[in-house]
Each structure stands twice: as C-alpha cells, then as structure tokens.
Design a protein around this nucleic acid. Structure first.
Lengths: 149, 149
DNA sequence: CACTATTTAATTGTGTATAATTAAATAAAA
DNA sequence: TTTTATTTAATTATACACAATTAAATAGTG
C-alpha cells in the first residue's frame, strides 16, 4: 500500500506538471495578448484563422480540440469585437463558417513578434523546446485517439 | 514576414501542444474520477490533502498553483460532498484550514489504482514519461518564477 | 498606542471547458 | 418517398480559472 500511496504524490504526477505548466504559460502570454485585446484561447482561434482564412465551427473544433460549447460563445465574443464574421452555409444550413474581418487579419502583424518574445524568456534552446513539442504532440495524438473510442 | 508568419502556425506552438494535451488528459481521468465522484481539479486537491492531512488555503494554492478565487468555491463544493472540513484558525482568523473527513480519507484507497491505469494506456515506458515530467517541472518552475516578478 | 502596511480569504465579474440535450438539416435505407 | 439515422451548432447546466476588489486581521513602525 505504501508503494501505491507513493504513486499518488503530486510530485509524481505527469498530469499535474502538464496541467500547471499550461496555466503558467497562459499567464506568460497574458500581457502580450492584452495589447491585442484577446484572451489566450481566442489567440489560438486566430492562429488557425490566419492560416485557413475561413473555417466551419466543426473544423475549428477539430484543429483546436474544442467543441461547440466552448467555441460558439467564444466566437460570438470575437464577433462582438469585430474580429470575425459568422455566417451559415447556404449549401448546408447546419454549418456555420467563421472568417476574419479586416481588423482580425491586421492583428496578425501585431502578433508576429509574440512567439519570439515567449521563446526568449525561457532560456531554453530551440532544439530542446522543439523536442518537447514533438513529444507532447505524440502524446496528444495518442490520448485523443483513446478519448475518441 | 513569411518567416514570422510561419512562427504563428498552430503546428509550431509548444504552448498549444501543452494546452491541448492537458485537456485530453483530463478526459482520460474523467471516467476513473467519476467513480470517486470528484472532478480532476478536486482530485489534485485530494492528492495534496492525502499527503499533508491539513493545509491552509494559501498553502494549497502554492502547491497547486491556484488562487483563492478557484479554491474557495471548489473547497466549498467538496465540503458539501463531505470530503473536507473548512475551519478558521484560532491563532490567526484570516487563515482557513482544510482537512479531510473520514470519507475523504477513505477515497485514497479507491484512487490507488488510478496512476497505474492511466500509465498503462499510454504504451510509453516509465522512463520516457518520467523524463517528460522532469522536463515540464523545470519549465514550470521557470515560468512560475517569471510570473511572480 | 495609533497608524500604516501586509497578509489572507472571500467576493465579483468575465471567460473558458465540457457533458448532455435540443433542434434543424441532410443523407441513407426500406 | 416516408422513415430512420447521422451530422452539425446551439443551448443549458456545472465547474473551473483568474484579475481585481473587498474586508478582516495581524504585524510593524514611529
């Protein structure tokens, strides 16, 4: 039982180190994103829209691993800020397409320097962070596949 | 500019791989924690209480990297479920001590097998996950120190 | 001792997250 | 072609997260 209890120590939880690190990362981004007037999840939404121009809510959810319960209200807030436009498809009335306004497109140039700023504060090598990212992407795929079943 | 735009691709964001992985991990824990009747953040709170028996809200926040705006309502819900007891210190009336009820203590034995169950589904080696954990703990410390300034 | 600063939780307001349900539309099958 | 199943967003309810403020208590200073 001692051994089993030891497995329950916070110190030994990989899950916690990921969970806490994720939240600390959000805090690092906060002052940078405040300048753009967006939150961290909204920034992620912008990343995929800058890459794809127009996306359905479903496709955005697949890319960001988020569902409509999260995306719908978030995208409505972004529409209120005039960052995105939401419009139903004519071919299939169930589908809602999200696209960027001019204001949303312009934010890209203000965001350009953010990755570099965040990287520089870590004092880690590019290679080390790259490797960590790939390890996590592998784990992410594995867990996501498992959760789909 | 092309190079700068490339840095904004979702695929290149370490932050996103951590963010998304963290949420997928929570989903893996969900069915296991449902059996105990707790959420994932509540499970983390139980982990530190199983280790420390009694903790102030402040100390719990330090251990879990959470503030009172998150902990206070969560601990009240856990009190409603009769998992914890909240009582103010006599020496310092500002301090609230959290301790486990018998029911809360007993959950430990039901939780014992969870780490093993989660580990087994990953198909990763113990060493690989251990190394990932240590890398993230280092990053967590670094970011947390930065965010404190 | 009075006054100020600090510490600690609680509260408030906003913004995610996710499970579960609903509703509308399309596609597939009998 | 009616019926059935599936797909897609939206909605609802619950539970975090965190910034900012408040309030109470303690500690420190002159």
């Amino acid at each position: 039982m001692e051994q089993l209890y030891k497995q329950l120590q916070l110190e030994n939880q990989l899950c916690f180190s990921i969970y806490a690190t994720s939240r600390e990362i959000t805090k690092v981004y906060k002052p940078l994103l405040d300048k753009l007037g967006v939150t961290y999840p909204q920034y992620l939404a912008l990343l995929v829209l800058w890459e794809h121009e127009t996306l359905s809510v479903k496709k955005m959810g697949e890319l960001l691993y988020l569902d409509s319960g999260t995306l719908t209200p978030m995208l409505k807030r972004m529409q209120d800020q005039e960052l995105v436009i939401r419009q139903r498809s004519h071919e299939d009335e169930r589908v809602v397409f999200i696209s960027l306004t001019e204001k949303g497109k312009k934010l890209r140039d203000k965001a350009c320097h953010i990755p570099e700023e965040v990287f520089s504060m870590t004092n880690k090598s590019q290679g080390e962070l790259e490797k960590l990212k790939e390890t996590l992407q592998g784990l992410l795929q594995l867990l996501h596949t498992y959760n789909q079943k």
